[in-house]
């Protein structure tokens, strides 16, 4: 089973995201901020093909984590989907520039999330 990592400081959001991911066949790992996420990713190495990533989080925010991943050759091909309440064009543009594969604005529905995952071309 493919693994996915959900990174959000809200436990509620992590639970909602994890539920959908499990329904479509992922094994789900969770982290509450960028730093925790980095630890998980480093421990897992390249076995995590998908990350759902919030923007505003303590310790290390989503954008900083995204940039770190894109700078690191072994992690640079991970599919990263931002899932965030930063719902303005500037933020969306900035995330895409930094290498996000897709962008989901909060609030979202299951259809929205699954549709965006399909757009990334990741194996579902």
């Amino acid at each position: 089973m493919a693994k996915a990592l959900v990174v959000d400081d809200s436990k509620t959001i992590r639970t909602i995201l994890a539920r959908t991911l499990k329904e479509i066949g992922f094994e789900v790992l969770e982290a509450a901020n960028g730093r925790e996420a980095l630890e998980v990713i480093e421990a897992e190495k390249t076995t995590v093909p998908l990350i759902l990533l919030d923007w505003d989080m303590p310790e290390m925010n989503g954008l900083d984590l995204l940039k770190r991943l894109r700078e690191t050759p072994e992690f640079s091909s991970m599919v990263v989907v931002m899932v965030t309440a930063q719902n303005d064009l500037d933020h969306i543009g900035e995330a895409l520039e930094a290498g996000a594969n897709e962008y989901v604005m909060k609030p979202f529905t299951k259809d929205v999330l699954v549709g965006k995952l399909e757009l990334t071309g990741i194996q579902l």
């Binding site: 719902n87 303005d88 064009l89 969306i92 543009g93 995330a95 895409l96 996000a100 897709e102 962008y103 989901v104 604005m105 979202f108 529905t109 259809d111 929205v112 549709g115 757009l119």
Partner: peptide, 20 residues
Amino acid sequence: QQIEVNRGLPASLLVKHFRQ
């Protein structure tokens, strides 16, 4: 509405073709 552009539309096209 946000919910409508969130659904099915690639983020790159949102940035390219929409203004808020």
